[in-house]
């Protein structure tokens, strides 16, 4: 495990170094700021409804995909771009461990940034209405969705130097438009995994963000299982690719 944690330490420094953290910090401020101002003049009973409209949509549909895309794709993509991948691969470590450590790092960073953002927005509900019941569900939803997103985007980052562009097209065109039109596609939609976990755990009926789910039944158990399966498949596939593919 020494190698695993060494890769995690260095990858976190790579991913969160420089201007990236500042930009993500600004992006992460958006949900709590929107929540703060949108709930300023509301009655206490309406604050949680406001939370489930714009702030939660911004967390799950904008901040989370964008942060996970940049960090997930960068976890292996940065190594490939900087020609440091050989430094990691010429070690007596299973390649799946390298892939696992990279995914773990991207997930930690994404969950840390977006979880803080979502947690602060949920805290506004607690401060304004004394209702803290949304805090844990939103953190679980973020963690589950971050795992699914980072897995897919890590693999994408390994394959393509244009992973961020491709990922943006995927998130905003495929997820937003095409997968919404088909029940089968919606069931494997990354966008809906996190929302499904959140809606499944959040108290009472939720209006607003649940529209995103469409035909997908809300439930944390199913969402966690989907995310874990995606992560396991991606680690196995990436490990195999790192073993088999030429590193030119």
């Amino acid at each position: 495990m020494r190698g695993f944690f060494a890769i995690t330490r260095v990858t976190l420094r790579q991913l969160l170094g420089g201007k990236r953290l500042i930009l993500f910090g600004l992006l992460a401020l958006l949900p709590p700021v929107v929540m703060w101002f949108s709930s300023a003049n509301l009655a206490e009973s309406s604050v949680s409804d406001a939370f489930n409209e714009a702030p939660i949509a911004i967390v799950f549909l904008i901040v989370l995909p964008v942060v996970a895309l940049v960090l997930g794709a960068g976890s292996l993509g940065d190594e490939r771009r900087d020609a440091t991948l050989s430094f990691l691969l010429l070690r007596p470590l299973p390649r799946s461990l390298v892939a696992g450590a990279k995914l773990w790092s991207a997930w930690l960073a994404t969950t840390g940034i977006v979880g803080t953002s979502a947690g602060l927005a949920a805290a506004v509900v607690g401060v304004r209405a004394g209702d803290w019941a949304y805090l844990v569900p939103v953190l679980v939803g973020v963690a589950v969705a971050a795992l699914a997103y980072c897995s897919v985007f890590m693999l994408l980052g390994y394959f393509s130097s244009r992973a961020v562009l491709i990922g943006l097209v995927y998130v905003f065109i495929w997820e937003n438009g095409i997968s919404a039109a088909s029940a089968a596609l919606a069931n494997v939609s990354l966008w809906r995994i996190g929302v499904s976990a959140y809606v499944g755990l959040a108290p009472g009926p939720i209006s607003g963000i649940d529209d995103v789910l469409g035909s997908v039944a809300p439930g944390a158990g199913g969402a966690i299982a989907k995310a874990l399966v995606i992560a396991a498949l991606v680690i196995a596939a990436t490990g195999s690719l790192l073993r088999r593919r030429d590193l030119t």
């Binding site: 260095v10 420094r13 790579q14 170094g17 900087d82 020609a83 440091t84 430094f87």
Partner: peptide
């Protein structure tokens, strides 16, 4: 291996 390219972590 000491590769030809600059395979170092600048950070």
């Amino acid at each position: 291996l000491v590769p030809e390219e600059d395979a170092v972590y600048g950070i």
